[in-house]
Amino acid sequence: MLVRLTYLGAIRIFAWLFLMSRSSAAKNAEILILRHELAVLRRQITAPKPDWPDRALLAVLTRLISQALRERRIVSPRTLLTWHQHLVKQKWTQPPSTGRPPLPEEIRGLIIRLGVENPRWGFGRVHGESRRLGHKVSPATVRRVLRAVGLGPAPRRYPVRMEVRARTIHNLGVTAHPTAA
Rank of each mutant, 00 (worst) to 15 (best):
M1R: 14
L2I: 12
L2R: 13
V3D: 15
T6F: 10
L8Y: 12
R12Y: 15
F14H: 10
A15N: 06
F18C: 13
F18P: 01
L19T: 04
L19W: 07
S21K: 04
R22N: 11
S23N: 12
S24V: 12
A25R: 12
A25V: 11
A26E: 10
N28L: 05
A29D: 09
I31D: 06
I31K: 13
L32S: 15
L34Y: 05
R35L: 09
R35G: 05
H36N: 09
L38M: 12
A39K: 11
R42Y: 09
R43H: 01
I45Q: 14
A47V: 15
A47K: 15
P48Y: 14
K49V: 07
P53Y: 00
D54I: 00
D54G: 06
R55F: 05
R55W: 08
R55P: 02
V60F: 07
V60L: 11
L61H: 02
T62I: 00
R63V: 15
L64W: 08
L64H: 12
L64T: 14
I65T: 13
I65M: 12
I65W: 06
Q67C: 07
A68R: 15
L69H: 10
R70A: 06
E71K: 15
R72A: 12
R73H: 13
R73S: 14
I74T: 11
V75D: 09
V75Q: 03
S76T: 15
S76P: 06
P77R: 05
R78Q: 06
R78F: 00
T79E: 15
T79R: 13
L80T: 04
L81T: 07
T82I: 06
H84A: 10
H84T: 09
Q85F: 08
H86Y: 03
H86V: 02
L87S: 14
V88K: 14
K89V: 00
T98E: 01
T98I: 05
R100S: 01
P101D: 03
P101C: 09
L103W: 03
E105H: 13
E106Q: 10
E106S: 14
E106M: 02
I107A: 03
R108I: 00
I111F: 01
I111T: 08
R113A: 08
L114R: 03
L114T: 03
L114H: 03
G115Q: 02
N118Q: 10
P119K: 06
W121E: 05
W121Q: 04
G122H: 10
G122I: 08
F123G: 02
G124W: 07
R125C: 03
V126Q: 01
V126Y: 04
G128Y: 04
G128N: 06
E129T: 05
G134R: 08
G134S: 07
K136P: 03
V137Y: 01
A140Y: 05
T141S: 04
R143N: 09
R144Q: 04
L146R: 06
L146Q: 03
A148E: 10
G152F: 02
A154G: 03
P155I: 11
P155M: 06
R156V: 11
Y158G: 12
R161H: 15
M162N: 08
M162S: 09
I169H: 09
H170I: 14
N171E: 13
G173Q: 07
V174G: 02
T175K: 01
H177Y: 12
H177S: 06
P178A: 08
T179V: 07
A180H: 04
A180P: 01
